[in-house]
Design a protein around this nucleic acid. Structure first.
Length: 591
DNA sequence: GTGAAGGGCCAC
DNA sequence: AAACGTGGCCCTTCAC
């Protein structure tokens, strides 16, 4: 493809390019940077293209004038990027948005992200890759040469080849979007695509904001657990070694306590009937009869805490900001849930000792809000089950309410055990639980479990019908959808009972989990709009929970904005069932 | 030495 | 695969 491009190095060029492009509907947009982390490197190039002309703006000359975020010479560029129109088409726009926000001091609005779109179209196909080269090959049957991607973008003079590569990546976006939009339309993914695109900037901002961790508190907690661990390890080592036959003159062979093989052998030598695996739930059954097993569980918990929630988390604290800046993958799961890594701040243990380490810096506050029972409310809405909906409308304790309905007793006569059954049933039903598993987790016999499940589903006939229908539809159409239209394509072998059963469970779970993700994403978008111009900043999201950090004076107001954004988002997807959000202001993540 | 696979376990 | 869904991270084991 022949492309026409111009390198721009001065303010007249910026004004001319941005002036010319301001009236376009769509622009290809890309950046080249000297590093991957915006806190490390330099934003070298910003490329804009209408498909015919491409402007490659060298940012370096402007950094000599003054602060890139303030100099008037770049105002036209900032305005173009900030405007909702033209739409900026980028591949993995989060990357470019972070660099622009950090270095040019403006949000990028009006985003079309070809990576997210490609993921939506792939609809859960894990084999598909979504790099620009793969996406261009898939939608345009065009080869994109990415060799210059890792070239030296810090060189004083960029080569003609580098500039051409930079221009091409932006230019290709126009055609790519056209083809992708066709597919999004065919697959009825326009609404969910818009939802995803509107989340890019909030997430980019959140990653730049970072999440504050009190390193001192964390180390104190770590020291405590490390102490515990060394004591338990010693005791456990001694107890396990007692059963080892091959004691030698030099003492007993050390057992690697982290090796499930060695531990299982040692336990068997002690006469413990260890089943095929040494997983927690299996060991828990044995812990009552065998103190050594209880000790092993203690060891496992402490070892996990030290290895997964120890010093390694602190290694991710940025030396310049003093905060964690995790990577959030916007479509981390096919259901639309986020995933998070380096570090994963979505899996911090719920215990106060850990959560309290994530606090507001001095002079600030955390505003924390989460959806109450959002997945069950979605299930109630989708199934249109009168009893289930009534339970929510009554506003009473939901699990007690279902216990009362399922066991046919008055609300105030529900025993703690009945409530516990109802609670586990309510959670399990979202995942498509079966009687065997329910029996296992409650200690009921298979028949009792079957009986309880039957009673549950005859109380909630609508729920039963909906879940059956969802499972059937998944198998018959091989497609499931969420409230926003997000799609999952099932790939199963109809002759393989296991894989059919898997599709049935996913058919039940995907729309629920996915709609929950839809609602959270909608809330993020509303929130970003409503918090603009305040000191409040998004710092973490955990599936049904949003954390914001802000100034003390703004905390109460922020809490109200957060709560209403989440409620409004929920109400867009749930028409019959009330949405409930619990919001509070706190110094720490823990209440 | 390095990487993949699998067990195990944290979150929602 | 505990016949309950979605992730990421740590560890050992095993193959190259």
């Amino acid at each position: 493809m022949e492309i026409y491009f111009q390198l721009i190095t001065d303010s007249e060029g910026v004004a001319r390019a941005c002036g010319e492009f301001a009236s376009e509907d769509y622009l290809g947009f890309d950046t080249e940077t000297t590093e991957l982390d915006p806190f490390d490197g330099e934003l070298r190039l910003v490329q804009l293209s209408n498909g015919k002309n491409t402007y490659v703006i060298d940012i370096r000359p402007f950094s000599k004038i003054g602060d890139l975020r303030a100099i008037p010479e770049l105002a036209p560029l900032r305005e173009l990027l900030f405007a909702e129109r033209p739409i900026k088409i980028a591949h993995n726009a989060k990357f470019d948005a972070k660099w622009v926000r950090h270095h040019l001091g403006t949000d990028v609005n009006g985003i079309f992200d070809t990576l997210l779109a490609s993921q939506l179209i792939a609809a859960g196909d894990q084999d598909r890759r979504h790099g620009l080269a793969e996406v261009a090959a898939f939608f345009l049957q065009t080869e994109v040469d990415k060799t210059e991607q890792v070239s030296d973008w810090g060189a004083p003079e960029l080569s003609q080849s580098q500039i051409q590569y930079a221009a091409k990546d932006a230019a290709i976006m126009i055609a790519l979007r056209e083809r992708i939009v066709e597919r999004l339309r065919q697959d009825q993914l326009i609404k969910v695509a818009k939802l995803e695109f509107d989340c890019v900037m909030p997430i980019a901002a959140m990653e730049l904001n970072g999440f504050y961790i009190d390193q001192e508190r964390w180390r104190e907690q770590l020291a405590k657990v490390e102490n515990e661990l060394s004591v338990i390890a010693l005791e456990l080592q001694k107890e396990l070694s007692a059963g080892v036959a091959q004691a030698s003159l030099f003492g007993v062979a050390e057992i690697n306590l982290d090796s499930q093989g060695q531990v299982a052998d040692a336990l068997r030598n002690l006469g413990v009937p260890v089943p095929d695996s040494t997983r927690k739930w299996q060991l828990e059954q044995l812990a009552g009869d065998y103190p050594v097993v209880a000790k092993l569980l203690e060891y496992r918990a402490a070892a996990k805490a030290v290895s997964s929630f120890g010093e390694n988390i602190l290694e991710f604290v940025d030396r310049r900001t003093g905060r964690l800046h995790p990577d959030f993958r916007q479509i981390g799961a096919p259901s639309g849930r986020f995933s998070c890594s380096r570090p994963n701040v979505q899996q911090i243990p719920h215990e106060t000792e850990y959560r309290r380490c994530f606090r507001a810096p001095d002079g600030r506050k955390l505003v924390i809000a989460d959806y109450s029972q959002i997945e069950l409310r979605i299930l109630a809405e989708f199934s249109n089950d009168e009893n289930f909906i009534n339970a929510f409308e009554s506003g009473a304790d939901f699990h007690s309410m279902t216990a009362a309905q399922v066991f046919g007793v008055a609300m105030d006569a529900v025993t703690p055990e009945q409530r516990s059954f109802a609670k586990r049933l309510n959670f399990g039903v979202v995942y498509g639980i079966g009687a065997a598993r329910f029996a296992m987790m409650t200690g009921l016999s298979q028949t009792q479990a079957e009986d309880t499940l039957r009673r549950y589903f005859s109380t909630y006939r609508g729920l039963d019908a909906y879940l059956r229908h969802a499972a059937q539809t998944a198998v018959a159409t091989r497609v499931a959808r969420t409230g926003s239209g997000r799609m999952y394509r099932f790939r199963f072998d109809e002759n393989d009972r296991q894989s059919v059963a898997g599709a049935q469970r996913n058919g039940k779970n995907f729309p629920i989990q996915g709609t929950s993700a839809d609602i959270l994403k909608r809330a993020l978008c509303l929130l970003h709009q409503r918090l603009r111009g305040t000191s409040a900043m998004l710092v973490n999201i955990v599936h049904d929970e949003i954390l914001i950090e802000c100034g003390v004076a703004e905390a109460e107001g922020t809490a109200r904005i957060l709560e209403s954004a989440m409620l409004d988002a929920g109400a867009e997807y749930l028409k019959r069932v009330p949405v409930k959000v619990d919001a509070h202001v706190s110094d720490e993540w823990s209440k």
